[in-house]
Design a protein around this nucleic acid. Structure first.
Lengths: 223, 223
DNA sequence: GACACAGGTAACCGTAAGGTAACAGTATAG
DNA sequence: CTATACTGTTACCTTACGGTTACCTGTGTC
């Protein structure tokens, strides 16, 4: 998730950026209107956080200008609690308004709320050769064929995709799939065999390769 | 537009009701949790405004109870500015939180915002294979046949549609349908069986598939 | 060449997860 | 007040998941 923060108080800004980073929110930062316009021109965000008082103008006018150009949800920050400002902000398309001082967790929650409202994110997809995986819908196809995997095999495939194109070590796999249980080499071997056989039919190129002593990885074999 | 207001301060409540009326917002009013539950049981609203401090309990617990049963956006009112309360409120599905004292116009604006966001999807329809669902009219058809579901089954179907094409985990389903009650695996199994049998006749392709250990999902089976 | 070692395959099978049908208590409608 | 529907409960069935074992294969080392 990425947002645009426009705020001239650099202390507040850096604190906010740090905190939001911990919450998994990436921040593009501008301290003036002009800078904000420049940065944001070719970028789209999950939400925009706008201070009202800016050195080169008024966040409200920025919102007014953007309200029909940009589709991002806007949250206003302001030290002023004046009703007038709030109403004006909402009339320019703001979806939320937070009065300083505020607690950073509240800001984070409200940002997440706005972002989730307006964006239903597309599912994560992974493709390799004729293999196609929808990581959210959990649908796997190879060419026309639909592949159904057992829970363990799905877990393993997810792991491999997450690390693609790097190999995943045997130890890492065992840790992930059999946490805190005794697990032996045989269980691991069986799992690999089963996933491999489900992923490829006789006439198809192999996808699951083991690099001796290093682990296994997804790859198409070029000869 | 009609909202539900739950607030034990009768002075504030009457002022609010008057003001909102001028803004074209009709209000159902309750002063206690119990009353709120009674009034709202068979009514749906564009938004719900909940005071946190109520004579017979805590607005938060009402929200917690409702968060998976009702789909209305909730706005909290509270005299307490404590961050803890706010975060709890948001975690129970609140979409906004207003600290007393507040200006009535701001309340009105925020209510309208919530209501409009929620209603931005009028006439929600869902189709999959020969299944057709009108989510507002709550009419389900498969081919020529009209399907009637029990309340629980409808809830489950709605859930599945909301997440489509992604699966919904057993835990999520149990949380939504039997919030805070003991619920066991058997109730879950029965519900699935009943919905499945209602959705498909013998000659029709299955729509409700379970992915072991991962949940269940709506899907047409491609061969 | 023999041996060790890592990895691969196929078959076996106990079991847990899921599916179904029937029953009963309670709520609901008419 | 009766009939019907809804949902929780139980008992039993089915399946395929995954652990286990036995036996391969290839490669490197002495």
């Amino acid at each position: 998730m990425i947002i645009l923060l426009v705020e001239d108080d650099t202390v507040l800004a850096t604190h906010s950026i740090d905190f939001l980073a911990q919450e998994g929110i990436e921040v593009d930062y501008a301290s003036t209107m002009r800078q904000a316009q420049a940065i944001s021109e070719h970028q789209s965000y999950d939400a925009i956080v706008l201070d009202i008082n800016l050195p080169d103008g008024d966040g409200l006018s920025l919102a007014k200008q953007w309200q029909h150009q940009r589709q991002e949800p806007i949250l206003f920050l302001s030290a002023r609690d004046a009703l007038d400002d709030k109403l004006k902000a909402f009339s320019y398309g703001a979806l939320d308004y937070l009065t300083k001082p505020f607690a950073l967790p509240e800001l984070a929650v409200r940002i997440k709320l706005l972002a989730s409202k307006n964006n239903s994110k597309p599912n994560r997809q992974f493709s390799l050769d004729s293999l196609h995986v929808d990581l959210d819908a959990k649908i796997i196809t190879r060419g026309e064929r639909v592949i159904v995997l057992s829970p363990q095999q799905w877990q393993l495939l997810e792991l491999l995709i997450k690390h693609y194109p790097n190999p995943v070590s045997k130890a890492a796999i065992i840790n992930q799939i059999w946490p805190q249980q005794d697990s032996n080499n045989n269980m691991y071997k069986s799992l690999i065999t089963r996933l491999r056989s489900n992923l490829t039919r006789e006439d198809e190129p192999a996808l699951l390769h083991t690099l001796k002593k290093q682990g296994i990885t997804l790859r198409v074999q070029h000869d």
